[in-house]
Design a protein around this nucleic acid. Sequence first.
DNA 1: GATGAATGAGCTTTCATTCAT
DNA 2: CATGAATGAAAGCTCATTCAT
Lengths: 200, 200, 200, 200
Amino acid sequence: MTTYKEKGREGRREDIIRAALEVFGDKGIFSARIEEVAAAAGIGKGTVYEYFRSKDELISASIRYEMEEFANMVKDTVDREETVRAKLKAMVEAVILHHRHNCHKMLDINPATVSGSMKDLKALFLEQNARWLAWLEEILDAGVAAGEIRRVNPQLLLGALMGAVMNLARPWGNPGWEDSTPAEAGEQVADLFLGGIGRD
Amino acid sequence: MTTYKEKGREGRREDIIRAALEVFGDKGIFSARIEEVAAAAGIGKGTVYEYFRSKDELISASIRYEMEEFANMVKDTVDREETVRAKLKAMVEAVILHHRHNCHKMLDINPATVSGSMKDLKALFLEQNARWLAWLEEILDAGVAAGEIRRVNPQLLLGALMGAVMNLARPWGNPGWEDSTPAEAGEQVADLFLGGIGRD
Amino acid sequence: MTTYKEKGREGRREDIIRAALEVFGDKGIFSARIEEVAAAAGIGKGTVYEYFRSKDELISASIRYEMEEFANMVKDTVDREETVRAKLKAMVEAVILHHRHNCHKMLDINPATVSGSMKDLKALFLEQNARWLAWLEEILDAGVAAGEIRRVNPQLLLGALMGAVMNLARPWGNPGWEDSTPAEAGEQVADLFLGGIGRD
Amino acid sequence: MTTYKEKGREGRREDIIRAALEVFGDKGIFSARIEEVAAAAGIGKGTVYEYFRSKDELISASIRYEMEEFANMVKDTVDREETVRAKLKAMVEAVILHHRHNCHKMLDINPATVSGSMKDLKALFLEQNARWLAWLEEILDAGVAAGEIRRVNPQLLLGALMGAVMNLARPWGNPGWEDSTPAEAGEQVADLFLGGIGRD
DNA sequence: GATGAATGAGCTTTCATTCAT
DNA sequence: CATGAATGAAAGCTCATTCAT
């Protein structure tokens, strides 16, 4: 029941993260300066250090926050659908919309590019993977039970599906195709993953 | 074809790029210092600047070099096969081997993460995409003509397939699945993309 | 009026300029390192950059500051006198005193020597010339009106007089003559310029 | 009796100095790079070091060379005249012509500006001063003997005259006046120094 | 608690100088 | 002798971090 101007430390912390995601998305985590994040959050430079021990910690927290947001958004959307096909379609649409309208760029961060300063990023990725995997297995089990799909290796499907959708959703990646509406894109990807490219 | 100079020992420029790929892969392009690249190449710091105008230019050249190498390697391997299934399988194997044994990390660089300093990276990505697309279209046409596969949007398939394979091949990405041999992985991905997950 | 910032302790910017004049005078603007200027000002290296965008900007500001100070000092001294002869004498004395006791060396900077890095120095010199010229014209007009001197081209006299006095005042330039007291020097120069060397 | 392509070490050394004067005049002695001087001389970078121990030595030699040339040129021109007035006029003309057409900029170098790297510049200036002084004294003696001028302190006149003429001849210094022809300029300066500005 | 002036480690880049050819 | 590729000391500048207010 937080009132205006009464959000306390947690709310302030989140403000900074949101500002950081904005700035990091625009300039890249290395080129972005703490001062810019502070300005975007409407606070002083020193105040950032009241909430985060270092820039690295702010980056970690921002990535974790964005991953959480992203996962929740996708899962909420997908869970609303019944069939695997509908879920697939919904997922693609959600990811595309997210990538087109949000500071999605953080999700693409490559531990390797960043490795110089962030040792714990890999652990974060593994943790997230485990959650996605558990969720996907539920969907697959239900789909198999319903006779809609055949059983496949969940980690294989997770890796392939996420890789495919995230890559397709990148705004700079697929000229010619990226003009398709999210609905069309969802349709196409669902067709591809359900039916394959083999002669029908 | 050289951007700056081609003096001194033949291939000195290429040596520097290879050293850069090594170091950039380990530390990330931002954390890596030019001095480390020079040391890895067995030369003095100043010598790097005899061959590259700036760190940015070295990064650009390194990414381009790696993309070129990677594309050639994959294409060579894939072109040796006849059927689409065999090509798919070969491609997965090649990418996994490459990612496990080479300084593959450069390929994952996200222009957004890097945007502060490199304006021309996006153009490089688009250029590469065009080459991959032309190549994939040939394969698809042949496959369709042979009655092996159905016709699909090439950019869709390229985006999905490359995203899937690159993501699966990431050494830090898919716990449990990444222990499979390249041959097994190729088999699984080929099955997935040819047959889909729909009830057969 | 400030070019960059005016923060922190009042006059911090001016402190840096004074320190810069000291160090630049000793080592020369090229050999002087920013760190030395900072040390002379009793601050850290980075702080200089809070007040000046670059070394070039600090040099510009320092030269402008010194010119201003010098011009004010000379004009104040000269304006106190009545006759042209007394003004001439006072001017020589003032310049000699200034050159002997202050970091006068900046005034001798030659745009040509410096041209590599400072494009706007010439404009600064022209601006200063205009101010000196206006001032000298007033003096000449009054002197002519009083029947003390004949009319001469003001820019000719300004160039000749300033060149002569500045050159004579250089501590390294005129052995044998530079031992004369400022009062004697003023007397001699006044004689020279008023009476000329022609047979009387 | 040097023939073409047979000038030997001395000729080569002089070529480098001339090239250095050219480049130093354009870029300033600090911004100018040895490589540029070498290129201007049409030789390799390393060859410069066959003739000069260091950049500082090249600078010293170049300044000395230019001073020598300048002094000889002025003296030759002036010695051709008979009266002091004609000599004065000739001197001004010569200096202006030299400054407008040659790499005169070296003459304006201020030991203070440069002091970081060149300890012996001051000695060079004193040495030159002594030679000019001896020469001027001869002229003055003759002028006094001929009843053309009154006796003045030679060092005073040297300092004032050289300062005045060099300052007036600076291409960037005296707007409005610098359009006058060398002949006019000589006339004016001769008038000024012979007659003074006092009421006639 | 919030701030932002001050700081200096750390980085890129330059260029005088060397020396193997 | 002449050369220019190689070098690393040195300098300008940035920015994460601190701490007095």
